[in-house]
Amino acid sequence: MRTGMELADRYELAGLIGRGGMGEVWRATDRRLRRPVAVKILPLAAGADATEVARFRREAEIAAQLVHPGITTVFDVGEHHDGTQPLLFLVVTPPPREREGFSLCRLGFATGQPGP
């Protein structure tokens, strides 16, 4: 991933927020709605099958149903293919500037592990 990269002809990556065992979280812009977002990007392993993709999508659907001021809101989920490694991505509300690392890490978005 790199600054300026566009996912799904919609999300323009602006800067890396964090990196963990499962992937990376980027500050981005939703070009269609002209709003800031955070994008969690997970590279698909070479041997990944449809079950893994379906599980990721299902988890995103469940997370999108949660509404609470203490958690991020899920806006979108998708796949991106740019000729190299396929990627799964999850688009969520961006964290407040002063809490960006805290919010994403507490929710497991930066590390892939549940927060305390």
Rank of each mutant, 00 (worst) to 15 (best):
G112H: 04
R31M: 15
P95V: 00
F89S: 00
Q85G: 09
V91G: 01
L107T: 10
L107D: 11
Q113C: 05
D30E: 04
T111D: 01
A45C: 03
R19V: 14
F89V: 01
L13V: 06
G112I: 09
G112E: 10
W26Y: 10
E98L: 11
R31A: 04
T73H: 13
A64I: 07
G20H: 08
D30T: 09
A110I: 15
T73R: 15
S103T: 14
R10S: 06
P94Q: 13
T72C: 15
R19E: 14
G83N: 07
P116T: 05
H81A: 14
E98C: 03
H81C: 09
P96C: 09
V67S: 14
L7A: 07
Q85N: 10
I71M: 10
F102H: 11
Q113R: 15
T84G: 13
G20P: 04
S103F: 01
D76G: 00
R34K: 14
V74Y: 04
R106N: 13
L107Q: 15
I71L: 13
D49C: 05
L7C: 03
L104H: 15
R57A: 12
P114F: 14
E98F: 08
G20R: 01
G101C: 01
K40C: 09
K40P: 03
R10I: 08
M1I: 07
F109T: 02
G21E: 12
G4E: 07
E98R: 12
P36W: 02
A8L: 04
S103Q: 08
L13N: 04
D9T: 10
V53Y: 03
V25T: 09
T72I: 14
D76N: 08
T3S: 08
